[in-house]
Nucleic acid binder design. Structure first.
Lengths: 138, 138
DNA sequence: TTTTTTGCAAAAGGTTTGCAACACG
DNA sequence: CGTGTTGCAAACCTTTTGCAAAAAA
């Protein structure tokens, strides 16, 4: 992602605030799905309230800058939408690995063509769950 | 799913109890993802405690009879694992439709072959998010 | 009888809301 | 200046836990 977070926010028609810039920067430097609490810890010296982080995550998601990732953990994880990829998650220890190969757009088109109810399909989630090498030894 | 829920439970090496049978029956009759609260409402005349429902969902999932479905709603939804399918979810009204076409096993094999960290991949989630025809009019 | 399951009450964890002060544009 | 954003405290909702009674095998 472009490092000019103020510009990114302007393009998304959001006001430029310190909290939003700091949160975008966190996503940009940590290339992995993260949750509100993690951001709060990482930015705690800057003093942003956890509530602000929740609200920011919501508005960044609504604007399309972030997307949710379902890791089957207790809380909601998000990632930048800037490059399309998916995850393999270890059901033992929670470790994740990402991959890019994805034929889901083809699947989506096929589903949409046959669907009696749906008009458009915009997003998808695809996560694989398995066991990592170190957990399969234990 | 076989209507002999006692047998299903025995095969899964779980004790046969009224709560487990009733919950399996609910899943069997409602062919859609449901959550703990929904089951509680549906079985409220039988008086099962909500805590029991949560614990039962956990044990049925652990035994492989149920799987989680991520609908991006506030609570955890489950479905029978008896036949493989996925969902399209309307981001406007939450309506879901299911589809069976799924090439994810191929994707999984490819990912596993290239993965430095993972030993096995057992499950996957794949959900499509879009807008249904009635929501796209409004 | 032994072990697992259930109910109840209470706690925990994540997330949302109301409201007043503040900051962006 | 007006509207959107933030912080604080409190509420909310879903899910989990401890313990004793009840039920399954």
């Amino acid at each position: 992602m472009n490092k000019d977070f103020a510009l990114t926010l302007k393009k998304a028609k959001l006001k430029v605030t310190p909290a939003r810039q700091a949160i975008l920067e966190t996503f940009s430097s940590d290339c992995k799905p993260i949750n509100a609490e993690y951001i709060h810890q990482k930015l705690k010296d800057k003093g942003f309230n956890l509530v602000t982080i929740y609200r920011t995550l919501t508005s960044l998601e609504t604007s399309g800058l972030l997307k949710r990732v379902d890791l089957r953990k207790g809380s909601t994880y998000y990632e930048l939408t800037d490059h399309h990829h998916h995850h393999v998650i270890c059901t033992g220890c929670g470790k994740t690995e990402s991959f890019e190969m994805c034929d889901v757009d083809k699947i989506s088109k096929g589903v949409l063509r046959k669907s009696p109810l749906f008009e458009t399909i915009g997003q998808h989630s695809l996560e694989l769950f398995g066991t990592c090498k170190s957990c399969s030894k234990g």
